[in-house]
Design a protein around this nucleic acid. Structure first.
Lengths: 209, 209
DNA sequence: GTCTATACCGGGATAGAC
DNA sequence: GTCTATCCCGGTATAGAC
């Protein structure tokens, strides 16, 4: 039976992925060479190409793993009601996003680097950002339809909030030391306050004149 | 006199910088090779090294140019009062930052890519982010000392706002087309509303229970 | 200072034995 | 499927003529 072979192959693939995850956090996606990965995994260079066409495909694999893992828990926990003007609901959302970043840091780092390294002319940053915050945008639109007054168009607020979350998480989680001496909980709390105030309190006219 | 030589050299250096600026926006800093720059500038490869040790040094030069230009106008326009709870003051600040990003896009793109491409383990992202938002942090601390209640520590709010601004600007300004069909003014207005509400309205307890 | 030519090397990718 | 050995190219950086 070929089961043994398959198993061994699966082991190698897993080893490569595992090594990649580790290296992506330490050195980053861009600076990690394929040979670094194979070396760290204790395999040969040639073996890599039996499993992945290139580094991008490996990343895609990691991403798929993450989605498979994360989507379950998210769907399970995801509240049906989405009144983001409710401070606690908002905080739950932000906290969940932050937690996913934290848990899948290798993939997050890799994706972030890969996105930014792309040709600016490709417009990929904007595309990714809007795609990843689509759900948030819809929630905001829903609020608007219900008569809630937002400080701006959902089409810009959602990407803005997503940008803040992603960039800040990247910075905080890769801060070797000397980062914010602050627990994740505190950070999420602060962000919640910032966003919550902006989204919710807009009716209270602070307009001059 | 050697003035003629010097002048020619200065011309070459300027040409290289100018070409670099153009290419950085189109292809990005990382994807632009030294040979691309010299080619675009109509100079030879070897000539490059007469002016810069490497690509990093060229970027440092561009950055210096930008600072020299920007600091004047900023200092000139910078209001002495910094009550960021005043919506218009806040908007002026955000608008100014956005304008600098827009005007010096090549340098901004290059710095951003360079920052993100660094080894995550270096912690550079957090270091840069805190350094670039130091002034904002001080303003927030000043507010706090005066008894104003913020939604979180200035040490995290300032980087958070900076992260939002930087990442969003990068995404928006490199969005080939299909970006937000929105003028800069509208974007700044929306961001102002978002941040202003968060910073200012916190007293109004929206706490549950 | 600027050019042409080239040395040099890192690293992606493949060939072919096992 | 995995290995070793190698090809090969892009791109940095330098040498030396002008």
């Amino acid at each position: 039976m070929t089961g043994v072979r398959k198993q061994k192959a699966a082991q190698t693939e897993a080893a490569l992925k595992e090594a990649a995850r580790r290296l992506f956090v330490e050195r980053g996606y861009l600076n990690t060479k394929i040979t670094d990965i194979t070396k760290a995994a204790g395999r040969s260079t040639g073996s890599f190409y039996e499993h992945f066409a290139d580094k991008d495909e490996l990343l895609a694999g990691l991403l798929a793993d993450m989605r498979g893992q994360a989507s379950e828990q998210i769907v399970a926990e995801h509240p049906r009601e989405h009144d983001l003007t409710d401070r606690e609901v908002l905080k739950a959302h932000l906290g969940m996003a932050w937690g996913v970043f934290r848990e899948h840091l290798p993939v997050v780092v890799a994706l972030f680097q890969s996105m930014v390294a792309d040709e600016p002319g490709s417009g990929r940053a904007w595309r990714d950002l809007t795609a990843d915050t689509e759900m948030l945008r819809e929630h905001l639109e829903w609020l608007e339809e219900r008569g809630h007054r937002l400080p701006g168009a959902p089409g810009i607020l959602a990407p803005a909030i997503g940008a803040m979350l992603a960039m800040l998480a990247y910075a905080v989680m890769t801060a070797a030391d000397g980062g914010p001496e602050m627990a994740d909980e505190e950070i999420v709390e602060a962000l919640t306050g910032l966003v919550s105030g902006g989204l919710g309190a807009f009716g209270a006219s602070r307009m001059p004149g």
